[in-house]
Write a protein that binds this DNA or RNA. Structure first.
Length: 829
DNA sequence: AGCACGCCGACT
DNA sequence: GTCGGCGTGCTC
């Protein structure tokens, strides 16, 4: 008899760097048919054999090999694999592309709520306690009393009362003596709500016989007749709505005529939203051509990427809707990505209004339970459309036909946690491996995406006309330096001031855009020049009028507003800069009769506040709406005829090569809010850089010229799309140690590059180490190195980083430094 | 991360 | 002698 062993290769759910690899476990014979690739299992791990959740990535058969060092899998966690083979492939690909950990990639695909965590519970064994021989120490008594008092408690909760070391030692000793008992438990953080259903188990030919057999029980017969019509009915429904009591159901149960089954009930986050139908619109010629072409690609399982470049209001959403409809007709599923679901409620409403059901929503506002339910709905095939932010790209569909990324250029599509993926990259992968079509849409496509169009990697389709034939708004540039010269120190130019006045008289609505929240953006002493900064970040504090406090916009810390300079005690301390709160007060003082509202992070922090403000704006109660970038997306209000951009160019001063692109996108985005109805829209753009190309071309709304100019500059300075960037960030509490660590890494990168023959070009590849843009955040210092690579050396650079920061990390970086790798950074901070 | 081993100094 | 401090190394 041969010695045949089944071995599971697993990833242990533990985010420690060193454990980010496959571990082998023996599969006990009774589980051989259950445990396969993608199954979650429980395994004993480490010296203490603590129980951990693990993901099976492969199953091998070993014959006559020494497996004595291997431990056994305790049990499977799920009956069915939680990951498909395709998903395991994608996880491996993500690890390779983003240099992240397996478990980080896994957590993208599986919602946080499904992932179980081990908990240790302890309780006192009274018998042993009463019989113990020696005198206990004070701390032992304290801990025992505490545990006695609470019954069975989680060990974690002890750490709140006692120090870790105390607990550690005491518990260990008492456990050895048997006085306390420790139980390891893996609890699901989610309670799956199960509901009981009743259904007939009698076949049709036996039905009559069964009915006759309970002649005396009239109500039971009625219940049988009732169930005959339906497949299965909730017990709660039978009892509450139809008056069939427990005894009636039990009667049929005991005769084996019906059975009770349990089903997971799914909470529906859309449940409390009312549903307004959104009828199908007849597409115009431009739209029809695009819909037909893409539908043809979907129907033929072609791997294709389209970029729809269409101005705001050109009817992209209707194209999306009809494409999804055609996808569903083919029996396939579709994913619709939006930058931020709370800011694009209209998109969601339209999809719901058109398709009514089968839609799952994925976004950050969901509770763990809701997220889990939505994920289950997709995995089980109950939903065939997913609408959501970034994370929705991982929706577990098995017959994906179409992925739509709306507002493709938005930076929210880039993850800020490891793996630092961009939705577009994941979408391209899925499209390629699941034979589905990818559609990108934007009025201001990212330079990279449009460039791929130029290179014929994606197919660009232009939408030139506004669907309702509305004219694009007229953008007027105001030179704010001129205003100063003419003695106007106000934040409003004379032109914008008079336009607002006119608009108020005409009973039209105005939007004012300012991308800085708070009241004053910095506080400074006029005597000594001291600027008040956050104690743990390298950031000047913003004054907030509502709370009368200074706030750090980085770590969120709050300080009382000083009346005198904290440095020199001078009373000559002044509040400078204008944020949305101050703008609101200023505008109110200029236009006392106007009804003004403000929409920014502070005004919308309460749940539902966002919707409330939008509703009252929609109803026309509000004359002037002041807001940050929050108002730039998705608002479609026909009565808005004037948009004022208070300062368009603060971003242009940032050391970011993408700044002009962001300014251009933002101006066009805000401008698109004006003139969506019958009246022509007007935009007043205030700037200190009127001759900057991004301002000038934004005013002309000329995307193509802007694209060409930008591409020219990117080429000259070798920025993406002509190069690939890699950013490495080190963060640590010890400034010097962090700097030395990143310097060491930088030197090593350069050394390896040199050894591979890159001697003269080193300064064009490796930049840094530099201090982070915000050098200190939450008392931690940040440094970064930027690597600029071309097609030839990208693989080499990636291999170097993998070697230095992952495979041999211990040799180069100490554990108290946080390292982060960004393979295609959108911003460098 | 945990947990154990092991090597040193301060005590019953 | 031995208890306990923490540095080091491993986890299938």
């Amino acid at each position: 008899m041969e010695n045949k062993k089944y071995i599971a290769e697993v990833i242990v759910n533990n985010s420690v760097n060193k454990l980010d690899k496959l571990f082998d476990y023996i599969i006990p014979p009774q589980f051989i048919n259950i445990i396969k690739e993608g199954t979650r299992v429980l395994v004993p791990f480490g010296k203490g054999n603590r129980q951990f959740e693990a993901y099976v990535f492969g199953v091998n058969i070993k014959l006559d090999e020494d497996t004595s060092k291997l431990k056994e899998v305790i049990r499977p966690i799920d009956e069915e694999p939680i990951l498909t083979i395709n998903q395991i492939h994608m996880i491996k690909w993500m690890k390779g592309k983003y240099l992240c950990k397996y478990i980080e990639a896994i957590q993208c695909l599986i919602p946080a709520g499904v992932v179980n965590k081990e908990k240790r519970f302890i309780y006192v064994n009274r018998e042993k306690l009463n019989n113990h021989k020696y005198e206990m120490t004070e701390i032992q008594k304290d801990i025992i009393n505490y545990v006695e008092e609470k019954g069975k408690i989680n060990v974690e909760s002890l750490y709140k009362r006692f120090s870790y070391n105390e607990v550690y030692r005491v518990i260990k000793q008492l456990e050895n003596e048997g006085i306390i008992i420790i139980e390891n438990k893996v609890d699901s953080r989610i309670d799956i709500i199960k509901e009981k259903y009743v259904r007939l188990v009698i076949s049709k030919d036996l039905y009559k016989e069964a009915l006759d057999s309970i002649k005396g029980a009239k109500r039971q017969q009625e219940l049988m007749e009732f169930l005959k019509e339906k497949v299965e009915v909730k017990i709660s429904e039978l009892v509450n709505s139809h008056g069939f009591g427990r005894t009636i159901i039990n009667g049929l149960l005991s005769r084996n005529i019906v059975e009770v089954i349990e089903k997971e009930s799914k909470r529906d986050p859309l449940l409390n939203l009312e549903l307004k139908p959104f009828p199908k619109l007849e597409p115009n010629d431009e739209q029809r051509v695009i819909i037909e072409e893409i539908t043809e690609a979907i129907n033929n399982n072609r791997v294709e990427t389209y970029l729809i470049h269409g101005v705001t209001g050109s009817g992209k959403t209707e194209i999306y809707l009809q494409l999804i409809e055609n996808t569903l007709n083919e029996g396939k599923q579709g994913i619709v990505l939006v930058p931020e679901i709370s800011l694009t409620p209209q998109t969601v409403e339209r999809f719901r209004g058109r398709f009514k059901e089968g839609i799952a929503l994925f976004h950050s506002g969901l509770s763990d339970g809701e997220r889990y339910d939505e994920w289950r709905r997709v995995a089980s095939g109950e939903a065939n459309i997913v609408i959501g932010a970034r994370s929705a790209i991982f929706a577990p569909f098995n017959n994906l036909g179409l992925i739509i990324i709306d507002e493709e250029h938005e930076h929210t599509y880039k993850s800020d946690l490891s793996p630092k993926y961009h939705v577009k990259e994941i979408a391209e992968y899925r499209s390629k491996h699941e034979q589905s079509v990818l559609v990108l849409g934007s009025a201001t496509p990212s330079i990279e995406s449009y460039f791929e169009g130029v290179e014929s990697i994606v197919k660009v389709r232009e939408l030139k006309n506004r669907a309702r034939n509305a004219k694009p708004p007229n953008i007027e540039v105001i030179d704010m330096r001129r205003e100063l010269e003419c003695g106007n120190k106000s934040i409003l130019s004379r032109r914008l001031h008079s336009e607002i006045e006119k608009n108020l008289e005409a009973k039209k609505q105005t939007i004012l855009f300012l991308n800085r929240r708070g009241y004053s953006t910095f506080v400074s002493c006029r005597s000594c020049g001291h600027v008040v900064k956050c104690k743990q970040c390298d950031i000047s504090l913003t004054f907030h009028m509502t709370s009368k406090e200074l706030q750090c916009h980085y770590c969120g810390d709050k300080y009382t507003a000083p009346r005198e300079c904290p440095e020199c005690s001078s009373k000559n301390i002044k509040y400078f800069g204008v944020g949305t709160q101050k703008l609101e007060m200023l505008i109110q003082s200029y236009f006392p009769k106007a009804v003004i509202s403000r929409m920014d992070l502070d005004a919308t922090s309460k749940k539902g506040a966002h919707n409330e403000i939008l509703e009252s704006f929609k109803s026309g109660e509000i004359d002037i709406m002041i807001g940050t970038q929050m108002i730039t997306k998705g608002l479609d209000f026909p009565n808005v005829t004037l948009v004022g951009i208070i300062t368009a160019d603060t971003m242009l001063n940032m050391p970011d090569f993408r700044a002009p692109e962001k300014v251009f996108q933002q101006v066009l985005q805000v401008s698109g809010r004006a003139g969506r109805g019958f009246d022509e829209g007007k935009v007043i753009l205030q700037t200190y850089n009127p001759e900057h190309y991004s301002i000038m071309l934004a005013a002309k709304q000329d995307y193509i010229s802007f694209f060409e100019k930008e591409v020219e500059l990117r080429k000259a300075f070798n920025y993406p799309p002509f190069s690939k960037l890699i950013n490495i960030t080190f963060t640590g509490e010890n400034e010097k140690e962090t700097y030395l660590a990143i310097s060491k890494i930088t030197d090593n990168i350069k050394y390896i590059l040199k050894s591979k023959g890159y001697t003269n070009e080193l300064d064009d590849i490796v930049f840094g180490p530099n201090e982070g843009m915000i050098y200190r955040v939450k008392n931690k210092y940040r440094f970064y190195v930027l690597l600029k690579s071309n097609k030839e050396n990208y693989t080499l650079l990636k291999a170097i980083i993998k070697y230095l920061l992952i495979d041999s990390r211990q040799k180069f970086v100490s554990d108290n430094i946080i390292t982060s790798i960004d393979m295609n950074p959108l911003f460098i901070v």
